[in-house]
Design a protein around this nucleic acid. Sequence first.
RNA 1: UCCCGAGUAGCUCAGGGGUAGAGCAGGCGACUGUUAAUCGCCGGGUCGGGGGUUCAAAUCCCUCCUCGGGAGCCA
Length: 433
Amino acid sequence: MTQTFSRIDQLSQFTGRSVTVRGWVSHLRSSGKVAFIVMRDGSGLLQCVLVKKQMPEEDWARFAALTLEASIAVTGEVRGDDRAPGGYELGVSALEIVGASPLDYPIQPKEHGVDFLLDNRHLWLRSPKQVAIARVRHEVEQAIHDFFYDRGFVHVDTPILTAAIGERSGLFQTEYFDEGTAYLAQTGQLYGEAAAAAFGRIYTFGPTFRAEKSKTRRHLTEFWMIEPEMAWYDEAMNEELQEQFVSYLVERCLTRRAAELKELARDVSKLATVKPPFPRIPYTEAVEILRKKGSAIKWGDDLGAEDEALLVADYDRPVFVCNYPKDTKAFYMKENPADPRTVLCADLLAHEGYGEMIGGSQREDDHDKLVARIKHEGLPLDAYDWYLDLRKYGTFVHAGFGLGLERTVAWICGVPHIRECIAFPRMMHRVRP
RNA sequence: UCCCGAGUAGCUCAGGGGUAGAGCAGGCGACUGUUAAUCGCCGGGUCGGGGGUUCAAAUCCCUCCUCGGGAGCCA
């Protein structure tokens, strides 16, 4: 005889019928001859009601042995009840303990400190808020693939072990056979540019690594980044794509992950306004605005975190800050013909103070200017021979950007720290679990 | 690397010279509709490490360690 099992999110179809559900205990309550189990199976929460005289004695006795996070199989009749979370509950006729859980389960239904929770991240993942964040993240990832698939982009996977150095920030190193030192990739962009010449429009989506000793709520040492690269796009087209893209991601979460955003107590009115066009503030203008607001920033300085927050405070959607000074930005960005002190680039700053979500630019497509920039930065020219070939053999106007997945998820969820937006965060003081 | 802050029960924290505290969790008991149930009783400690001041230090001083937040770097 084959026993069939039901998933909690399907139970409304089985009202009045007896089903068996398997999952884990998340809450226990008893008041003498009536007892309640709230269980979780990954698809939802289910309240199970046990009445002593309505079930076999040995099954009733098992309740006394039940503990938080034990795995169980519960059989009973599905019925609607307003007192039950989710509107449906199970009138239990049989209870089986599949896997016991000792009494020292670390995460109790109460307040805990973040450090303690991160030490127990493998168990913390089971908590409702964490489940909601993970589902929003999944929705964003799926939406990213859908958005680009629908626009004819090809998804290209770029290497994690690399010899070339993309930018100047910290790199993780490892020995690589007889080839010397290899680095963990901190961007797939240079490879993306090569692929753009093969497919026209591509995007990469993978982990990137930064060996910076960052200690802020916006930084991880390992994070996921999506990097589109488009042939024949200039910076204006690049920014239009970005605002459509970000708006689409938000829209998808608002329509399909409303329950999760509610669980997270996210003020969705702050997201409903996220629609194109986004404001565009040239860097030079941004400096003037900031100085009027009391910042000590001078032309040529990069924007500090406080400056970014000041600048974005007046808007109800993300803001582009464009055309930064050349010296504050990476070597591959194209010089601005209208003002050669600056480059054709834009950072997209999330509103509500979540900071830089996207960094993008038009790429330098002039071979000789690119060589000059690499030399000027003091970077090893021979490491970039293949990258320079892209300008040697049929150079082309192109642009692209990088979007930080965890920052985007944190912003959409309204979660203050991005470490909760990845299953197992990697930070300066944390490589386990 | 710099600037703040914190380390006390399994967890979250209070106590700031004179017998080590609370809530939750745990144990026992009561309760037929609970929502982080409630009520009664019980057990639970190297006060981060080391040194110093003092009759007396969790408390004051010095030092080290660990962690968190912010800055910088950037997504």
